[in-house]
């Protein structure tokens, strides 16, 4: 198998991942889980690098002296004191909570726990894998994610406080 990456294939595959089409709720869950996972992973990388700068960056590998630590800390704080980062954190809160609850739902589904069982069924009946319990967990993840976003906005920026 060749190791060459074909960009046209990658673009086509990206479209398949991002456009759920008319295939229903589970396809939306697939797309959203994927997008939220990638965005949260990028945030996680940025978070590790950013918290590293609080103690002085890559060059520091032992506890520095007080003056250096204070200066590094103040620089990092002044860099982060930016409403764009706060708004970004609210989006991250939304995506993290969605990915978490939806991830629990997917683990349960992968172990066959929240799905129905195989049975005799008519053709137009709802499939057993689209059970109400499983879909309720999806909507729970959506609503908790929106709640988390509003809570984060309130905690960081005081939006809903007089």
């Amino acid at each position: 198998m060749s190791q060459r990456v074909r960009w046209s294939t990658a673009l086509q595959n990206l479209k398949t991942m991002l456009i759920p089409g008319k295939y229903g709720l589970e396809r939306w869950s697939y797309t959203l889980q994927r997008v939220s996972g990638v965005v949260v992973s990028l945030y996680f990388i940025a978070h590790v690098l950013e918290t590293g700068s609080f103690v002085g960056g890559v060059t520091v590998w032992a506890i520095p002296d007080y003056d250096f630590a204070e200066r590094a800390y103040r620089e990092a704080v002044s860099f982060l004191k930016n409403p764009i980062f706060d708004a970004g954190l609210a989006v991250i809160g939304l995506l993290v909570v969605f990915h978490t609850i939806n991830g629990v739902r997917l683990v349960l589904a992968h172990f066959g726990l929240v799905l129905g069982s195989p049975r005799r069924r008519e053709i137009l009946e709802t499939p057993a894998s689209f059970s109400n319990r499983q879909r309720a967990l999806f909507w729970l993840s959506i609503s908790l994610a929106i709640f988390a976003m509003l809570y984060t906005l309130d905690a960081l920026m005081g939006v809903f406080r007089p």
């Binding site: 198998m1 190791q3 990456v5 074909r6 294939t9 990658a10 595959n13 990206l14 991942m17 994927r34 996972g37 990638v38 949260v40 992973s41 996680f44 990388i45």
Partner: peptide
Amino acid sequence: AFNGLRIILAELIGKRN
């Protein structure tokens, strides 16, 4: 995160690399 990215990248380019 990196196992997830590994799977997503494999499905993005259509094969394991």
